[in-house]
Amino acid sequence: MTALPLRVRRRPTFSWVGVVPFFLFAIAALGLPLGFLVIGSFQDREGNLTLQNFSDLTTGTIPIAFMNSIEVSIVTALLGGILGFLLAWAVIMGGLPGWIRSAVMTFSGVASNFAGVPLALAFVFTIGNLGLVTKFLFETFGLSLRRDLGFTIYSKTGIEIVYLYFQFPLMLLIIAPALDGLRREWREAAENLGASAFQYWRHVAFPILAPSILGTMILLFGNSLGAQATAFQLTGGTIELATIAIGRQIRGDVLRNPGLGYAMAMGLVVIMAFSITVYTLLQRRSERWLRS
């Protein structure tokens, strides 16, 4: 009889054991490193508390790096969003055969994951100096991308074209369920009430999709903002991006101020956290709509 309450009391203690490894690991591999950066960003070289690092973010090439990152991210989020939406519409609602849809979805899974070094190389082989398209245009039309169009892949535009390769399918993958969520009855109800196809899209389908589209574009923005490998492989760091500047900071304290490097990292995290939060909020809204 007396053993019973003891055992009952021991059970809840035991139940905590299951999550202890997880939290220990999370603290070691995630908490400590991030904590180090956070604290470091508020310290000067002597370890005193300061906000100087954050105001120093406006000095040197740092603003250019952030502006470039934001510009590339906005461009690829917008273009990737629009193109991804169009392709998703074509595959899901355009009346194409069903097998095309599953093929495109599977391919998008691969393409959205085909990033980093191999992706950068693949585009160099396509529109780089010796690339297939470059060669084709020059040999067929005598057109030089670099000389006549002023285009080089080792530029911001180049980075954007390459990023689109994973942005576009990611949009497709995330927006597809939202398009599936458009119920046939809504279209029929709109038609029944006298709406044209345009009026249906303008008043019903598009407003219902808008939170998902906007949210996913914001996700794409964050996705592009955090990218490093692709741009680094492509340009070797000649184009200033926030992630590339941070990468240089890891290799060595080029700013002669570690705190400033940490502040840069924090700046990036804040923008990322903001975009993910907005995405989550918008996603929640559209889920609420689609459920009712």
Binding site: L83, L86, L87, W89, A90, V91, M93, G94, G95, L96, I100, V104, F107, A111, L119, L121, A122, F123, F125, T126, L130, G131, L132, V133, Y165, F168, P169
Partner: peptide, 29 residues
């Protein structure tokens, strides 16, 4: 529906072109 699926085919073909081009170029290279 036929009109909209014509548009869909055009979009699909352009998309497939963009996706396959770098792969073909890499293979060719």
């Amino acid at each position: 529906r036929r009109r909209s699926s014509l548009v869909a085919w055009v979009i699909l073909i352009l998309g497939v072109f963009y996706f396959l081009l770098p792969l073909v170029a890499t293979l060719e290279f």
